[in-house]
Design a protein around this nucleic acid. Structure first.
Lengths: 196, 196, 196, 196
DNA sequence: TATGAATGAGGATTCATTCAT
DNA sequence: AATGAATGAATCCTCATTCAT
């Protein structure tokens, strides 16, 4: 049992180190040695714990998705109306537990890389579909049926735009401000797509 | 005269090949050999014409900026009202001459890489500042003074979001649809920020 | 303990291989692959152990200086008169432990390269200054004060000349003969500069 | 006839540019492009005029030998005694027409490279033999027969040593001082080897 | 578990050389 | 006579991966 724990601790340390290194170096200059150094362990260990660099990256992105899902589930539990559910989904993307400079940078790097990596692309599609479905479900109770899809797209686009902007200008806004701006986007989408 | 032309022709061919290769391989797997092969010339030529890979990438991003600026200037020439100028600036980012799958992909790769490259970062900031200034100027005549800045940010975020989404899902929409959606974003921003 | 040793063993092997390759190929055709092959290891190892070709060359020249200094210190320990100290310094340059065909060739290549390499130039100056100081100190007790400097220069010139000649004609003389000739040079310098 | 002249002018310009570039960059970083730029002509021309880099280097060293031989012949013409002939030969190596910083540097680079180049080695041996023979001939009339050879070697070693030293410390001495020091070496050799 | 020595394929870059103009 | 475009082999270096300890 203790052994399994050790595995998990090391794996988490390496994932954290990957995020930190992505933040500092970017995808194109991400090396296993750099990650290992950041984690304070030896280079060969990545292969011991993950099998290879690709698997570590996959695990890192997967850990993002897990965090995001957990935050989202927690927020949805407290939502009672469609609008509250909508805001919960949107705000979970800008939750302080998730929306940190390192995460924003790493996540953006994964986005850019995803079209060229089967694994990352698959994970990204899974996440996108889940978010899409959550938002769409809420919008169906808020805007006319024929508009829900467009409203969803608009909100997702605003969310993506905020992430991208924050990746480029790390001091542009903090998690709270980003969340507020995203909600502004929701407001805008509702206004735009409320009329039949 | 023919001599000067040759240089320019080859340079343009290499820039085109870089865009195409970025589209096909992504930034992390972009190699001079791949680019050379795409351009149908020998590997050493990149250094002959550009001095190195970094300079080629810089020239490629610069060519994007040039195209965008030219399209924008042309569209602005026909705009007579503030709203027309606003739409002109926004739509130039989705002009068919600029908003092609290859350009979208390459541009997005540059975005992700920019925070880790002094040159790309500088070019990106120059472009961002120019677009920002153009949009802000128009908004000052459309929304209350205190709101122009926020409205500008919202429009830029929608524009970025559309680009990002199209990079991830190449078949999501074409240039015309993307432009229309961006204008929807402008409409939304105006609605949101019109009241004092 | 074994770990530290391994590093040092490999580093020494690579330095030896560098000397041997310099001897066989000369500075202009000295490649990391050739050195690696000579050392019987893979090419990437040079960068693993030294960081790069330049650092390996620096370490190689540094190892020459260390050997020379050690030989010189050992010989000086047995010298009781000024003349004995003078001969000790001069002969250490032609000690069998140091004056081998490979060393002569490599050392000469470094000499030629030194003016164009900041590091090599610095090391060469350090060594030259040390030898100069040692010889000068001895000469001050042998020839009139005003002549010690010139006598030192003459001896150094003879020493350099012997090295150069032996580099060009490897079979010209062995270490013992070279040392004897250098001592002839000392005799000559004393004769030349003994009179006020 | 005019055409032949042009050829010779360009060839001489390229040889001069080679010496200058050797002086500035050293053998290991000597490139045809650098030489061409120094000569103010296009890169491909070296092959037009010399066939290749190696042939240009050979021609450059050959031009040194020619200059040296001409200076030596001129000085020998005025020598009437054995000692005067001896000094003439020695001093021609330090003639202001020959002993310039550029020449010293380039010549030294050739020396270091010679053991690894068939052509340079051959030229170097030819020159060395000629100088040796000239000096030996003179010494035969100055020192006892059995000593002439050793005296010659000593003088050559001093000459080489001066060249080497001046290559390493360009400001060490000028041509006149170098010549005077070489004559000191001749004096020393005569003193050393005069007694049977 | 963990280390770090060792590998070797792959990358950017340099450069002598060729050749059409 | 001269240019400079174009080539491709060779070089240094990087880095994921393997593996003995």
């Amino acid at each position: 049992m203790a052994r399994v724990k050790m595995q998990d601790i090391r794996r988490q340390e390496l994932i954290d180190a990957t995020v930190q290194t992505l933040y500092k170096k970017g995808f194109a200059e991400l090396t296993v040695n750099e990650i290992s150094k950041e984690a304070g362990i030896s280079g060969g260990n990545i292969h011991y714990y993950f099998g290879g660099k690709d698997e570590l990256l996959e695990a890192t992105m997967r850990s993002f998705l897990t965090t995001l899902r957990e935050v989202c589930v927690a927020r949805l539990a407290n939502a009672t109306s469609a609008r509250e559910r909508l805001d919960a989904v949107v705000l979970s993307n800008f939750d302080a537990a998730f929306f940190k400079p390192q995460t924003v940078a790493a996540w953006t790097q994964f986005w850019a890389q995803a079209p060229y990596s089967v694994t990352l692309h698959r994970l990204q599609k899974i996440n996108s579909a889940r978010v899409h479905s959550n938002i769409l479900q809420a919008f169906r109770q808020i805007v006319p049926a024929g508009q829900a899809h467009d409203a969803t797209n608009m909100v997702k686009i605003v969310m993506d735009g905020i992430w991208l902007r924050c990746a480029q200008e790390p001091n542009f806004m903090d998690a709270a401000q980003a969340g507020a701006l995203a909600i502004k986007g929701v407001d805008a989408a509702i206004k735009l797509y409320s009329k039949e």
